[in-house]
């Protein structure tokens, strides 16, 4: 090999090294870009409205002659909706995961798991569409309401949507428990179910907690499906009334907003972003503790 070739090769190598470094750092830039844009776009309106009036005002009337920008209804709706989805989705997902991870035969598992994957992959608008056509009329006729589009419908749709992530993360957590724990418990005379519920589940609890937090993150960030079933009126949350979430508040008015109203929508997005960052921080701690990989 002559010297020229060697030099050429070195140049290529150092260029490659630099390019990969840049590609790695680009990701940090993306996060910063999102943070900075949200803060720049979101802070002015909070300043103009006043942070207390904005966060704790109970009335949202952005297009009224004397506009009011209180987002407490949206915050509470998002919290109630997410909590409701967890209350329904967690037991369903947890017991399903326990069954799939421990009791199901190999054959059952390889048939059901792709179905769960499919559930995870179905686009959110499809959930919203089915919810709109099946769930909303059903709720209207069962509970005898003027309109079925309500917080309750949104909770059920969200519960279905977070089900696959709860199931999958829980399965990973349950399978990460060392087999010796199970064998020890069985040898001490506990039967299988007692072993699973009193030994395996407590050992996997941070992984399962991570599944819950992941579900919370999904539910609080979901926009389209909720927009199609929740009715979108800016009421204070009530189970059978039309409500608006943080996400849908942004999505539903963005296309025709202007001026302070538009700025306020960005402020809502900023609030949502802060929620998500908090949830992510909790999730990271739990995932590290549970030794479970995020899927």
């Amino acid at each position: 090999m002559n010297l020229l070739d060697k030099n050429n090769k070195d140049t290529v190598e150092s260029i490659a090294g630099t390019i990969f470094l840049v590609l790695g750092i680009v990701n940090i830039a993306f996060v910063l870009l999102i943070c900075i844009y949200l803060i720049i776009a979101g802070l002015p309106a909070i300043g103009k409205i006043g942070i207390i009036d904005f966060l704790f005002g109970t009335k949202w009337a952005s297009t009224a002659a004397e506009p009011k920008f209180g987002i407490l209804p949206f915050i509470l709706t998002s919290i109630y909706g997410t909590a409701g989805a967890i209350v329904i989705g967690l037991p369903l997902g947890f017991f399903s995961a326990l069954y799939l991870a421990k009791i199901a035969s190999h054959k059952v598992r390889i048939t059901v798991e792709p179905l769960i994957d499919l559930l995870a992959g179905i686009p959110s608008v499809v959930y919203g569409f089915i919810g709109m056509l099946v769930l909303v009329p059903a709720i209207r006729s069962i509970f005898d309401l003027p309109d079925g589009a309500s917080l309750f419908a949104a909770i059920i749709v969200l519960a279905v949507m977070i089900l696959p992530s709860i199931i999958k993360v829980s399965i990973t957590a349950l399978e990460a428990v060392p087999e010796e724990y199970e064998l020890g418990s069985l040898a001490l005379g506990a039967n299988e179910i007692e072993t699973y519920c009193r030994v395996v589940v407590p050992a996997a609890k941070s992984g399962i907690a991570a599944a819950v937090v992941l579900g919370v993150g999904r539910a609080i960030g979901e926009a389209m499906a909720v927009m199609m079933v929740a009715g979108n009126a800016a009421n204070m949350p009530s189970l059978f009334e039309s409500v608006r979430f943080l996400t849908t508040a942004v999505a539903s008015e963005m296309s025709y907003s202007s001026g302070l109203q538009r700025e306020a929508l960005f402020s809502i997005a900023l609030v949502l972003f802060v929620f998500i960052m908090l949830i992510n921080a909790v999730l990271n701690v739990l995932l590290k503790r549970g030794g479970v990989k995020r899927k």
């Binding site: 993150g217 942004v250 960005f266 998500i276």
Partner: peptide, 11 residues
């Protein structure tokens, strides 16, 4: 990975 899509849409 954790940021909801509506925020991506806005940004």
């Amino acid at each position: 990975a954790g940021i909801p899509s509506i925020i991506y849409g806005l940004v």
